[in-house]
Structure formats: C-alpha cells, structure tokens
Simulated assay, not measured.
Amino acid sequence: MKTKYVFIAFAVTALLQAFAPLKMVYDNEMTVSHGTVYKFKTEPIDPSDPFRGKYVSLNFEENILRVKDTVWQSNEQVYALLSINAAGFAKITAITKTRPQTGNDYIVVKTNYYFDGSLHINLPFDRFYMEEGKAQEAEDSYRDYSRQENTKPAYALVAVKEGNVVVTDVIVDGQPIRNYVLRKREE
C-alpha cells in the first residue's frame, strides 16, 4: 500500500517538474506567434557568460523616461505601456505601478533610479544569444558599422504579449545580425 502512495507522489512531482519548463516554452511561443513585435533601438556589444554562452548585450534608448511622479524606489517592479513612434520604433508612453488591463501592450520593468525628473529603468530583455562563432564577429562588425556616417539604426525585434517579452532578432543595416556577419565574412 505504501508503494502505491510513493509512486503517486513521484508521478505528481515529475509532472509538476515537467510542467514548469513546458509552460515557459509555451508562453514564449505564444508571445512570438501572437504578440505585437516592437523595434527597440539598440547598441550591441559582445560579452560572454561561461554558463549561458555568447550573446550580444543590448542597451536601449528607451531606458530613461521623463516622469512627473518623484516617488520611485530602486528595483521596484512597474509596468511600461508601449506604442510605436513616427519612425516605427517602440516608445514607452507611460509607467504605472498597477498591471494594465488586457488590450494594452506593456512590459514588466524594474526601476533603477530616479534623478531630476528622469526615471531610469532596466528592460527585461538585454541579451540576444548567438552561435558561439558569430558573437565576436557580430560585435566587431557592429563596431565598424556604427562608426560609419549616415547609417541605419540597429534595433532589436521584441515580441510582446501581456507583459511577456521575447527578443526574436537584432537588425543591423536593415538585415538580421546573423546575415550581416555572414556578409562581412564574404567581403
């Protein structure tokens, strides 16, 4: 009889452990397939994480906001409402401490610090992982690209759905960064 309960407890535990990563994958897939894609202007650099691999670190223009409210705590979870500006890039239109109603595109962000009417925030997506051999080339190519006059802006394509975000690609010179690196190899 005890063996039966141990087996049931084991089966329930195994199902719960399988459910968590499957739910995360499902949420990300739903965000990519049904979410709104925003273009966030960025400047990539290439650090390395020995546990997670090579990635392009992303810094964004949309991480400093002018706000009227002066009561902000560091590392506070808040919600940033999104829209698209005239140039087609993502713009944070408002910051709120309460979760927006369904129908509004928003992302969950953390406050960094407030100073002189500006709220500095940390966006939840700051890395784009790449194949090991291309990450350093991506950094080098982007550095050369950014030094040129009259270049198109680099940006990250970020799918957003109900606060969930997924970086789907980084665009440099109007093309995915992988293709840009391959083109640079051929030159």
Rank of each mutant, 00 (worst) to 15 (best):
K2D: 07
K2F: 09
K2W: 11
T3D: 11
V6C: 08
V12N: 01
A14K: 03
L15C: 14
L15K: 06
L16R: 05
A18I: 08
V25A: 13
Y26D: 13
Y26V: 04
D27N: 13
E29I: 09
M30K: 13
T31C: 13
T31W: 04
V32A: 05
H34N: 15
G35I: 02
T36M: 05
F40H: 01
P44K: 01
P44F: 00
D46M: 06
S48F: 11
D49F: 03
P50Y: 08
P50L: 06
K54F: 09
S57L: 12
S57C: 07
S57F: 15
N59L: 09
N63F: 05
L65G: 05
R66D: 05
V67S: 08
K68I: 10
K68V: 11
D69W: 09
D69K: 12
V71N: 12
Q73M: 11
N75A: 13
Q77D: 12
Q77F: 10
V78C: 07
L82C: 02
S83W: 03
S83T: 14
N85V: 05
A86E: 15
A86F: 08
A87I: 02
G88E: 08
F89Y: 14
F89Q: 04
K91I: 08
K91C: 06
T93Q: 10
T96S: 10
K97Y: 00
K97V: 03
K97S: 13
P100Y: 03
P100T: 04
G103M: 07
G103I: 05
D105Q: 07
D105S: 08
Y106M: 00
I107G: 01
K110H: 07
N112I: 02
Y113Q: 09
Y114T: 07
F115L: 11
F115Q: 13
G117F: 01
G117A: 00
S118N: 14
S118W: 08
H120L: 02
I121S: 01
F125A: 09
D126K: 10
R127T: 06
F128Y: 15
M130W: 01
E131N: 13
E132K: 14
G133Q: 14
K134Q: 14
K134R: 12
K134S: 13
E137V: 02
A138K: 06
E139Y: 11
D140P: 00
Y142G: 01
R143Q: 10
R143M: 09
S146K: 15
R147N: 10
Q148S: 07
Q148Y: 00
N150C: 09
N150P: 06
N150H: 14
T151K: 15
T151W: 00
T151G: 10
P153F: 10
P153E: 09
Y155H: 04
Y155F: 15
L157N: 14
V160F: 08
N164D: 11
V166C: 04
T168Q: 15
D169R: 05
D169W: 06
D169T: 04
D169Y: 02
V170T: 08
I171L: 07
I171F: 04
P176G: 09
K184D: 11
K184M: 13
E186Y: 09
E187D: 09
